[in-house]
Simulated scan of single mutants.
Amino acid sequence: MTGIRFVYFDLDDTLLDHRQAQHLALVDLHGMLPTLGEVPLRKVHSTYREVNGKVWREYAAGTRSKEGTRSGRFELLFEALGIEADAMVAADKYLEAYADHWELHEGALEVFDRVTKRYPTGVLTNGFAEAQRAKLARFPHLTAAFSAIVISEEEGVLKPHPELFRIATARAGVGPAEILYVGDSLHSDVVGGLNAGWQVAWYTDGEEVAGEPRVFRFSDWTDLAGLLRV
């Protein structure tokens, strides 16, 4: 991987440990709602992952509204679990708990700081604008380093849509092949980045993308530092 002049980072499950925050928020919600608390926590987690994925796919396809996504996942969760609870109340409580548990991935900040001393950086993230902006506000050290902030809802399209990557490329001010994207999602980040002509550092324990020299797979942040020689 050569010729990198700009580095974009994904936010959730790349810099921030979204899965852990989600897990802990569901634990909190399980203790707050009596009917939900009667269901084994493991079943709550597995069912939530299933319905949440379905709802977000519908939102990405334009068949579900923002509010329908926010509360709809809990309507479907309660229906699947066969319990009664107020989905709007659950959504509010969940989001409050979720925000309480935002943390950076171990090792991410140190390497991020080293990267920003050598390269201009930005963030490219899916998600609702108010939530993603709140995360950035929680970690002003990150935000101060970004020269470009691209949030899907603010642009009207989600990764891996080519238009979102076109917007991000323009804001970076360099050519597509000169951008490295650090992200965790094969579909949204790796495929989206490659289709845009970017290079990609894939944060994962999964398989490599066979025969694709523009993808660097890593699970330890020090390996990314080695790639970028920082």
Rank of each mutant, 00 (worst) to 15 (best):
L26S: 06
D17C: 09
L29G: 02
W102Y: 13
F112S: 05
G62R: 05
T116K: 08
G31A: 14
R42V: 15
E75V: 13
K66S: 03
Q22G: 11
S65D: 08
W102Q: 10
R73P: 08
A80R: 15
R114W: 00
L81N: 06
K117M: 02
R64P: 02
G68D: 00
A108T: 10
A25V: 03
E38L: 10
V89W: 07
V39S: 06
V123A: 13
Y119S: 00
T35Y: 01
H30W: 14
L36M: 11
L81E: 11
A61Y: 00
S65V: 03
G72T: 09
G82S: 09
E106Q: 15
L26F: 13
A21P: 05
V44A: 07
A131S: 08
H23A: 08
M32A: 12
D28I: 05
G53V: 10
G107H: 09
G53A: 11
R73M: 06
L16A: 12
M32W: 04
L16Y: 10
K66F: 02
A85P: 01
T69D: 00
Y98M: 08
L41D: 04
D92L: 05
L109F: 15
R114D: 10
M88I: 05
L16T: 12
Y59L: 15
R64T: 04
D100T: 04
H30C: 04
V39I: 15
R49W: 11
A61P: 00
R73Y: 05
K66E: 07
L29D: 04
T121N: 00
Y98L: 13
W56E: 05
L104E: 12
G107V: 12
G72Q: 06
S46P: 00
F128E: 06
R57V: 00
D28K: 06
A131Q: 13
R19M: 07
T47Y: 05
A87S: 13
A108Q: 12
A85L: 05
R42C: 02
A131P: 01
R73L: 04
G68T: 01
V39C: 09
D113F: 03
S46T: 11
K54R: 09
G31F: 02
D17E: 15
D92Y: 05
G37M: 12
R73G: 02
L16K: 06
A99R: 15
D100Q: 10
K43D: 13
V39W: 11
R49T: 06
A91P: 06
S71V: 12
E130K: 10
R19H: 15
A85G: 01
L41K: 10
A129Q: 11
